[in-house]
């Protein structure tokens, strides 16, 4: 796709609006939907990875120190990670822009 998706005109579309570029769903910024964002108190973290398992967007990644953090490009703020965390590391806070 030569143009960014939001600049495509009706003339740029393929037959039946098919997508010819495999895997381009990763460009879709589900983070735009977010009204709450996860925050972390890593001193309580036991690195069990349940947040990584339960995240429906699969957007958790381990950093160099082994802690799990959500990628905010994709995280839509559902709060499942905060609900599932057994030691209370994650707190959801309002996005205020």
């Amino acid at each position: 796709m030569a143009k960014p998706e939001k600049e495509l005109t009706w003339k740029d579309l393929e037959i039946g609006a098919v997508v010819t570029e495999p895997g381009n769903a990763r460009q879709y910024r589900t983070g735009d939907w977010r009204s709450q964002r996860p925050t972390y108190k890593f001193d309580k973290c036991i690195k069990c990875g349940l947040c990584w398992v339960f995240c429906p967007e699969a957007c958790f990644h381990q950093n160099d120190e082994g802690y799990f953090m959500a990628d905010l490009y994709y995280c839509y703020g559902c709060g499942i990670c905060a609900k599932e965390c057994p030691t209370g590391v994650i707190t959801m806070v309002e996005e205020e822009e």
Binding site: E5, K6, L8, T9, W10, L13
Partner: peptide, 9 residues
Amino acid sequence: FIYTEVKWA
């Protein structure tokens, strides 16, 4: 952001 373009096409 794209539905209207698809329908017009």
